[in-house]
């Protein structure tokens, strides 16, 4: 099966007055289509920086990234923008949706951006939202939806235009445990069904239960990779013997508040 995502020794260095940070340090990773990867690690370990580079929003200092057969390195800013709207789907931690568009319109927006808005697309958007349990919420504005419902709209938005790569930044951060499980499970199922590459950054280890692979980062480096189903289950329950002590053992019960 094709590798829709490949990174080769990707490195991101931040230079500030106080010094140099190797936020992402020589990360090499290959993800197959239909694979759902959870990216975990302590705060400051470089998860978001890596995600931003995969999203073409940040340029690596070294290394290479190839998505859907295309190297991101030679692209101009305009090409990157176009690449993002065609090949990448996003869900963000906060401010996911356009406040003045309904759930349906937010999903359709990706089709409009790509000039592919038509009856068939509209039908797909409706089905996708129904699949995510929002069949009766199509015409609600974001402010009329709960946090979990908004995240699900964002997931539909991330998938509607058939992207090669779906990136989710802490999709469960503002949800309670029950809803978080539901959201991640549906997300994982859709990645599998539609045969896309899914990468989810999460602080909540329990959410890794639905992943095919867990990539654990530390100080910018991949500390370890778990791709065995049983080990992942153990990891997500916090019972995996070699779980690093720096990881929070107890699952976070209080949802992290998104900045409003």
């Amino acid at each position: 099966m094709a590798n829709s995502l490949e990174t080769k020794a990707v490195t991101k260095i931040y230079q500030t007055d106080t010094g140099v940070t190797r936020a992402v340090d020589s990360v090499t990773l290959a993800v197959q289509n239909g694979e759902f990867v959870a990216l975990v690690g302590p705060s400051g370990s470089g998860k978001t920086s890596l995600l931003a580079m995969l999203a073409t929003l940040l340029s690596p200092n070294e290394g290479e990234i190839i998505i859907a057969g295309q190297s991101l390195m030679e692209m101009s800013d305009r090409e990157r923008t176009r690449f993002r709207r065609e090949k990448i789907g996003f869900t963000f931690q906060a401010n996911n949706l356009v406040s003045y568009l309904t759930a349906m319109e937010n999903v359709e927006l990706m089709l409009r951006l790509n000039g592919k808005y038509d009856r068939a697309g509209r039908e797909r958007a409706r089905e996708l939202l129904a699949r995510l349990g929002l069949g009766d919420r199509l015409n609600n504005l974001p402010r009329q939806l709960s946090g979990g419902q908004q995240q699900r709209v964002a997931i539909a938005r991330a998938l509607i235009h058939n992207p090669a790569l779906v990136l989710a930044d802490e999709p469960t951060a503002s949800l309670d445990t029950e809803r978080a499980y539901q959201v991640v499970q549906t997300f994982a199922n859709l990645i599998h069904e539609q045969n896309r590459v899914g990468i989810m950054v999460t602080h909540d280890l329990r959410m890794t239960a639905f992943a095919d692979r867990v990539v654990q980062m530390m100080d910018g480096k991949i500390r370890r990779v778990i791709d065995n189903h049983e080990e992942i289950t153990g990891f997500s329950r916090g019972t995996l013997s070699s779980a690093p002590p720096s990881e929070p053992r107890a699952p976070r019960l209080v949802p992290r508040l998104a900045p409003s």
């Binding site: 923008t81 176009r82 690449f83 993002r84 709207r85 990448i88 996003f90 401010n95 938005r157």
Partner: peptide
């Protein structure tokens, strides 16, 4: 601002 950042991230171009 946050909303515009999001729109740009998902691929809305500057002219749009």
């Amino acid at each position: 601002v946050p909303q515009i950042g999001m729109l740009k991230a998902v691929g809305a171009s500057s002219p749009v």
